[in-house]
Simulated assay, not measured.
Amino acid sequence: MNDLRSRLVAGFTWRSDPPVWPATRIYYADYSSWWRDPAVLAEIGPALAGLFRDAEPTVVLGTESHGFLLGPLVALHLGIGSAAVRKKPERASHDEVWLVRRTPPDYRDRHLDLAVRRSVLRTGDRVLFVDEWASTGGQALACRQLVEDAGARWAGAAVVVDAMESSADRRALDLRGVLHIRELNRR
Rank of each mutant, 00 (worst) to 15 (best):
N2E: 15
L4D: 01
R5S: 11
R7F: 04
V9F: 05
A10H: 14
T13C: 12
P19V: 01
T24G: 05
T24W: 01
Y27R: 15
A29F: 13
D30H: 07
D30P: 08
Y31E: 00
S32P: 01
R36L: 13
A42L: 02
E43P: 05
E43I: 02
I44N: 02
L48E: 01
L51Y: 07
E56C: 10
E56V: 01
V59S: 09
L61G: 10
G62V: 10
G62H: 07
G62K: 07
T63K: 01
E64F: 09
L69M: 15
L69W: 09
P72L: 07
H77I: 03
L78S: 08
I80W: 08
I80R: 05
A84H: 14
V85W: 00
R86W: 11
R91H: 12
A92M: 09
V97F: 10
V100R: 15
V100A: 12
P104A: 13
P104F: 00
Y107E: 15
D109G: 03
R110Q: 15
D113Y: 10
L114P: 07
L114H: 08
R117E: 15
V120Q: 04
V120H: 03
T123A: 13
L128P: 06
E132R: 03
E132G: 10
A134M: 13
S135L: 10
G138L: 06
Q139Y: 11
L141W: 05
V147N: 01
V147A: 02
E148W: 03
D149H: 05
A150R: 01
R153G: 08
W154S: 00
W154H: 10
A155V: 01
A155M: 04
A158P: 01
V159H: 04
V159Q: 03
V161N: 06
A163S: 14
E165I: 14
S166A: 14
A172D: 04
D174T: 12
L175Q: 08
G177F: 03
G177T: 06
L179Q: 00
I181T: 09
E183C: 11
L184Y: 13
